[in-house]
């Protein structure tokens, strides 16, 4: 019997547990303050003040919102499928958080002489794992929509599903082009490549990045692609029948998705935890890790701001325009990008 692969020491389990707890709570906290940020950004763009009652500058507003959602009456419709109705928001939340497992949040730190990697799992299929979880994200919406037993919810759910499936294709193809450049699926390897010597991947793959960005907007159901919850046609889309914290979970999962997809884009195309113009290998490991986390968080916040900026600037697409953009424009562009990248890799490396 060969047990050597599973002979894990307790310290490793402990360190991974702590890391998981920290990452999950950090994602929740950032998603919470993203709601506050969204309202402030919206207020700024519309020349208003935004939330300013709870605490200084309205800084306690997310807590107040959370409390309100918790204390609202919980309504489960009579004709709904009760188990699936509760399962929907749980699944949406679960898949939103699961993605964070393979993202490298920083290089390793040293505690008591142990070097602790700031990545929960460095698997060699890292990016495929993210695609896998992403493709499962649609279940939370579809199951909740169907279990509500409401036509508008079902429409919203079906729209969400077809939108996510359509844009996943272009996203996958644009990622293949990136894969040809990096030659690795592990997100850690990609960051290391961008850190040492190479430029950031966005320099090699500008078109691929643009396609990836547009698809990320669609996958997160953000404006201009927020048709699943288009309130003036569908009342509230897939979460029409939801109330209380179950509604909160759906809304919250969207913000976590936004955070995670910002992290993925920062890692894939913008060097991840690489602090620009600084050679990390000359610094002490703990300081370098801290600097890396700061750099990554800065990039993530930049992307989250971009998400909000677009939301309050660009109106919603029509559904046929959405499908046209996905199938007729993005997929051919992504295919062209893939072929061009393949040709360039062959030309320059052989």
């Amino acid at each position: 019997m060969d047990n050597s692969l599973l002979a894990i020491d307790m310290a490793l389990i402990l360190e991974k547990l702590v890391l998981i707890v920290v990452v999950v709570f950090a994602s929740l906290g950032i998603a919470m303050y993203a709601t506050y940020g969204e309202r402030k950004v919206a207020a700024f763009m519309q020349d208003r003040r935004g939330p300013n009652r709870a605490g200084p500058f309205g800084i306690l507003q997310p807590m107040a919102d959370g409390l309100k959602l918790f204390f609202k009456e919980e309504i489960i419709p009579n004709f709904s499928n009760k188990i699936l109705f509760v399962m929907g928001p749980c699944l949406a939340m679960l898949t939103a958080i699961m993605t964070s497992a393979v993202i490298p949040w920083g290089n390793h730190i040293e505690i008591f002489g142990r070097s602790v990697s700031l990545q929960i799992a460095d698997v060699n299929i890292g990016m495929l794992y993210i695609f896998g979880v992403l493709s499962l994200g649609v279940y939370g919406i579809m199951i909740g929509a169907w279990a509500s037993n409401n036509k508008f919810s079902l429409f919203g759910g079906l729209r969400a599903a077809s939108q996510i499936i359509s844009y996943e294709l272009a996203m996958g193809i644009s990622f293949i082009a990136l894969l040809m450049v990096t030659g690795s699926l592990s997100l850690k390897d990609m960051v290391l490549q961008q850190q040492t010597g190479h430029w950031w991947n966005v320099v090699y793959q500008p078109l691929g990045f643009l396609i990836f960005l547009i698809c990320a907007f669609a996958e997160c159901n953000r404006t201009p692609f927020d048709l699943p919850e288009a309130e003036n046609e569908l009342i509230g889309g897939y979460h029409t029948e939801y109330s209380s914290m179950k509604l909160g979970f759906y809304l919250f999962a969207e913000y976590i998705n936004m955070f995670i997809s910002s992290a993925v884009m920062a890692t894939l195309f913008f060097g991840g935890y690489d602090f620009p113009f600084v050679d990390e290998s000359t610094l002490s490991p703990n300081f370098a890790a801290l600097l890396g986390i700061v750099a990554l968080m800065g990039k993530i916040i930049g992307f989250i701001f971009l998400f909000m900026w677009v939301r309050w600037t660009i109106p919603r697409f029509r559904y046929d325009q959405l499908m046209y953009l996905g199938w007729r424009i993005l997929i051919p562009l992504a295919l062209f990008n893939m072929l061009a990248t393949g040709a360039a890799v062959l030309y320059f490396h052989k």
């Binding site: 060699n124 499962l136 079906l158």
Partner: peptide, 26 residues
């Protein structure tokens, strides 16, 4: 066989089953 595992999830659980769900719901 990590690749096979994740592709099984992406293709079957992520794509084909979504279509099944689609059809049955409609």
């Amino acid at each position: 066989a990590q690749f096979l595992a994740i592709v099984n999830i992406i293709v079957y659980a992520g794509a084909i089953m979504v279509l099944f769900l689609f059809v049955v719901m409609l």
